[in-house]
Computed example of a mutant assay.
Amino acid sequence: MTEQTTVTVGVIAKEIGVSDAKVKKAIETLKIEPVGKRGICKLYASDVIEAVKKTLA
């Protein structure tokens, strides 16, 4: 099994250039489930960035 790159809401927000709140709302709208957790941070697959970017465009 290959290691999948994961990102947090903050990383996605920084990558796209929007606020964390907008990313959280887009993730809720798309009904995307986290692939893991580190502490209290939800981790998402890196391919989520494109989906969120399209939703916010």
Results as ranks from 00 to 15, higher is better:
31 K>H: 15
36 G>A: 01
28 E>H: 08
54 K>S: 14
44 Y>C: 09
41 C>W: 08
23 V>I: 02
21 A>F: 11
3 E>L: 05
4 Q>H: 06
9 V>W: 00
42 K>A: 12
57 A>W: 05
4 Q>W: 00
6 T>G: 03
32 I>N: 10
50 E>N: 13
26 A>K: 00
28 E>Q: 14
24 K>F: 02
3 E>S: 09
43 L>A: 06
45 A>N: 13
13 A>H: 02
6 T>L: 01
8 T>A: 03
17 G>V: 05
47 D>I: 03
28 E>T: 09
6 T>P: 03
46 S>G: 09
44 Y>W: 10
25 K>N: 15
28 E>C: 04
35 V>D: 13
55 T>D: 13
12 I>G: 02
1 M>R: 09
6 T>I: 00
54 K>N: 15
50 E>G: 11
52 V>I: 10
7 V>R: 02
14 K>Y: 08
38 R>E: 15
7 V>M: 01
41 C>L: 11
16 I>C: 00
45 A>H: 13
10 G>W: 04
25 K>I: 07
50 E>T: 12
30 L>Y: 00
23 V>K: 03
11 V>H: 06
47 D>V: 02
55 T>W: 04
7 V>G: 03
46 S>K: 04
14 K>G: 12
53 K>C: 07
55 T>H: 14
2 T>E: 14
46 S>E: 07
45 A>M: 02
33 E>H: 06
12 I>N: 00
52 V>K: 06
49 I>K: 05
4 Q>N: 12
28 E>A: 11
37 K>P: 13
57 A>F: 04
24 K>R: 15
5 T>F: 00
11 V>A: 06
3 E>V: 12
15 E>F: 01
5 T>D: 07
12 I>T: 02
35 V>R: 11
54 K>F: 10
1 M>K: 11
44 Y>H: 11
40 I>C: 10
15 E>V: 06
57 A>I: 07
36 G>N: 04
12 I>P: 04
13 A>S: 05
48 V>L: 02
48 V>A: 04
28 E>S: 15
40 I>D: 14
5 T>L: 05
3 E>H: 06
25 K>V: 08
40 I>T: 15
25 K>A: 15
17 G>K: 10
3 E>K: 11
44 Y>L: 08
54 K>V: 13
27 I>L: 10
20 D>Y: 02
19 S>P: 09
50 E>W: 06
23 V>N: 08
